[in-house]
Simulated assay, not measured.
Amino acid sequence: MPMPVIAGVDGSAESLAAALWAAREAVRRDLPLRLTHVWNWHPRPEGGEPGTAAQRQLARRVLRQAKEGVRAAAPDARLYDEQLEGPATAALLRAAGEAELLVLGSRGLSGPTGLLVGSVAQGVLARATRPVVLVRAGENAAHELRPTADGAFVRAGHPDVVLGIDLGDPCDAVIQFAFEAARLRGARLHVVHAWRKPSVPGLGPGEIGLVSGERRSDEWLGFLSAVLRVWRDKYPGVEVAETVTEGRARSALLRAASGAGLLVVGRHVVDRPAGPRIGAVTHAVIHRADCPVAVVPHE
C-alpha cells in the first residue's frame, strides 16, 4: 500500500484547513488520506475510565467534522482515520514516519493555543524524517479560481511554488520536492537564493565575494542556473523563474511567498548537543509566511 498523506486534526480551524489542504494534495498525488487525532490518556486513581471515554467521544466528533469537510471539498479523496494516544509530538512523529508527507495546522504568530501549533508543531518539524507542511486557517482552493465576465468562476493557474535554496549546500531532496509540487499543480516554480557580502578575512582566492558588487548577482545567478539545469531537464513541463538577491534569506523568502501557493524550505537532519533545531530561516517563515510552508528534511 502506498504511504498516505496524513493530516493531524484537533478540531481547530487551523487543523480543518490542514485537512482540506491535505485532501487536495492526496488527490493530486493519487494517494490515500489519513486523518489522525491524538488524545492523551492521563490515568487517575478515580474517574480514569470516564475520562478516557470522554476523550474518545471528543476524538470521534473531531474526526467526524474533519471527514465531513473533506468529503464536501474533495469527494475523490480516499479517506480513512485513526485515533492515537499521546503525547502529541511523539504520536505525530510516529505517524510522520509512515507518511508521504504530514500536514498540520498552524496559527503562525497569532497565538499559542491548540494542539497542533506552537511547541507541538515545532517539535514535530525539528525531528520528523519526512516532509511536514504547515497550513493556516483560511487556506483553501479559492485562489485556484478566477471570475468570468458573466459572474461564473473558472479554474485558473495555480499560484507559484516558491523554493528557498542555499547554493552553499543545495539539496536534491528539497529541490525535487519543489519541482514535483509545481508539476502536480501546473504552477510556476520560483527559486530564490539570497546572498550576503562576506567579510574579507573569510574569503579565499577565486570566491564570488571577491567579484565586484555589480557583477556578484550575475555570478550567483549563473551558479543557480547550473544547479537547476538537471532538474529542468527532468521536469521539462515546469516553468522556472530564478531570483538571486542580496540580503537576509528570511526576508527574501517572505517577499517571494506573498501570494504564493506553497513555500518549500529544507532542514538539516543533524545531531546537535542541544537537541534538534529547525534553523533560523525556517523558524521565521513558518511563523510569518502567509501561504502553506513545506519543510523537507535532508542530510
Results as ranks from 00 to 15, higher is better:
Leu145Ala: 15
Val154Gln: 08
His158Pro: 00
Val162Phe: 00
Asp169Lys: 03
Phe177Tyr: 14
Gln176Asp: 14
Asp160Gly: 00
His158Asp: 02
Gly168Phe: 05
Ile165Arg: 05
Leu163Trp: 12
Pro170Ala: 07
Glu180Val: 07
Asp160Ala: 09
Phe153Asp: 02
Ala182Met: 13
Ala149Lys: 02
Leu163Arg: 10
Thr148Glu: 10
Ala178Arg: 07
Arg146Ala: 10
Thr148Met: 10
Phe177Leu: 15
Ala182Pro: 05
Gln176Ser: 11
Asp169Cys: 04
Cys171Glu: 15
Gln176Ala: 13
Cys171Val: 12
Val161Ala: 04
Glu180Leu: 06
Asp169Ala: 08
Val162Trp: 02
Arg155Cys: 07
Val162Lys: 06
Leu163Gly: 05
Phe179Ser: 12
Asp160Arg: 14
Phe179Lys: 09
Asp169Asn: 01
Gly157His: 06
Cys171Pro: 01
Leu167Gln: 09
Asp150Glu: 11
Gln176Lys: 01
Phe177Asn: 15
Gly157Ala: 13
Asp160Phe: 00
Arg155Pro: 02
Leu145Tyr: 12
Thr148Lys: 07
Pro159Tyr: 08
Ala149Leu: 11
Val154Tyr: 11
Gly168Glu: 06
Val162Thr: 02
Ala178Ser: 12
Ile165Ala: 07
Phe153Glu: 09
Asp150Arg: 15
Ile175Gly: 05
Phe179Ala: 15
Gly168Pro: 07
Gln176Pro: 02
Pro147Trp: 03
Leu163Tyr: 13
Leu163Cys: 03
Ala152His: 08
Glu180Trp: 02
Glu180Thr: 00
Ala152Leu: 07
Asp166Ser: 10
Val162Glu: 05
Val154Gly: 07
Arg146Val: 09
Phe153Leu: 14
Leu167Glu: 04
Leu145Cys: 13
Ala152Asp: 01
Ile165Tyr: 01
Gly164Tyr: 12
Glu180Ser: 09
Pro147Asn: 11
Val154Ala: 09
Asp150Ser: 11
Leu145Ser: 14
Ala149Val: 14
Cys171Ser: 14
